[in-house]
Nucleic acid binder design. Structure first.
Lengths: 218, 218
DNA sequence: AAAAAACGTTGACAAATGTCAACGGAAAAG
DNA sequence: CTTTTCCGTTGACATTTGTCAACGTTTTTT
């Protein structure tokens, strides 16, 4: 069930994982998907869904996507932490996204348009993903109609979140943006070092350090 | 054809418009939709589509959506210019979007989630729109399956554009962001005054004025 | 036509943020 | 265990951007 055999043959063979963990991982995906679905997926639908994904592990610092490549996979983080960033003319990295368990990673633009990506995506911690290719993704949409609604719901949530972040970036001070991030995604602050959080907020690590100091005093 | 009678009865009776203009407007929407569609819509599909939209005119400064309301309509701008903004605790307006012909307006979050909007949307110029309610929109998706792909394509483009703007906002200086806007959407600079452009970029009108002066000297 | 409002610019100054350099502690590598 | 790298903080100073006020011009309203 749940394509355990297939998984095994696909070679996700990190010694940490055994067959029971595979089951757990796909149950994780299942509960996640059902959360965004009008009606729960049937066992059969879920069978199809799970066979479309492949497990993949990334060592810390290993690339999921490198600038110039076309983004061929979307990944769902089962365990770990991943960052997405661009590098400017001066070699400075600008963090575009920080992602942990339960989040999707990949460059939407490159994935949809099949153009080379301007971003890098790499693992900040050792990370386990479930990945899907564009072809399998489109096949999945065909064979499991309920996926359309699920994907749409995910896309809507993503669009809303991006819009909110953009609004905050334009309207709020660094201090307020940090407070907002801290209240909304406190876990990110614990999983990533401050210089990455700073870059994510669009400020330097020194400024973030001072902002935090001020907010402690209050 | 194209529901001209319906339009008339819906009361879009600005003296400027006559029956030929209605036709033109829907042809406009048709060519726009076809641009994002795999296969052109049939006449019949387009008949259904056009009956789902209602024409609506806004006078300059008239609200399309006010903070606290649920966004019940999405609007396609046929002619005119519209701004979307939030107002902070100090009463300062922060421009979230500036839109002209061929663009959609509405607050996605409120529209999808049926929650009160935190934004205001009003007409900067006298504006003609084609609007659709959520119910009609969902009905349209049901009765014209090709719309799913079209909407998805539009959503994807929107998501990519928002992501780009966010990346720019975090990574680039005010000067670079202005140059980017000027090269990408030169028309916006001519349709909206500088203090709105400045707010859209997340800077003050004085800073924008100085940025422009510097860029002329170069 | 006159008055009012909106708009863009400029100057002086204040505040926020960036840059560079240095330091010490923590974590990772050997 | 030792060495190296990474990380967060701090200080001094530079740069960018914001704030406030004033001014002239254009546009809108009356």
């Amino acid at each position: 069930m749940y394509n355990v055999l297939l998984l095994y043959h696909n070679g996700w063979q990190s010694p940490v994982y055994n067959i029971f963990v595979y089951l757990h991982v796909f149950e994780y995906l299942r509960s996640y998907i059902n959360r965004y679905s009008a009606a729960p997926l049937t066992d059969q639908e879920f069978e199809i869904l799970s066979s479309a994904f492949q497990p993949r592990s990334l060592r810390k610092k290993q690339y999921f996507l490198q600038e110039g490549e076309v983004c061929k996979y979307m990944g769902f983080i089962v365990k770990g932490a991943v960052r997405q960033y661009s590098v400017d003319d001066k070699g400075v990295e600008h963090i575009v996204n920080l992602s942990i368990e339960n989040w999707w990673v990949g460059d939407r633009e490159s994935w949809v348009m099949l153009t080379p990506s301007v971003y890098n995506i790499d693992a900040w911690e050792d990370t386990d993903l479930l990945v899907i290719t564009r072809a399998d993704f489109l096949g999945l949409l065909d064979s499991v109609p309920a996926m359309h609604g699920i994907i749409k719901s995910l896309d809507e949530k993503h669009a809303i979140a991006t819009q909110k972040r953009l609004t905050a970036s334009i309207s709020f001070s660094a201090e307020k943006r940090y407070a907002d991030l801290a209240s909304r995604y406190p876990e990110l602050l614990q999983r990533f070092p401050q210089h990455l959080i700073a870059s994510y907020l669009g400020i330097t690590k020194e400024t973030l350090s001072r902002v935090r100091q001020r907010s402690v005093k209050k």
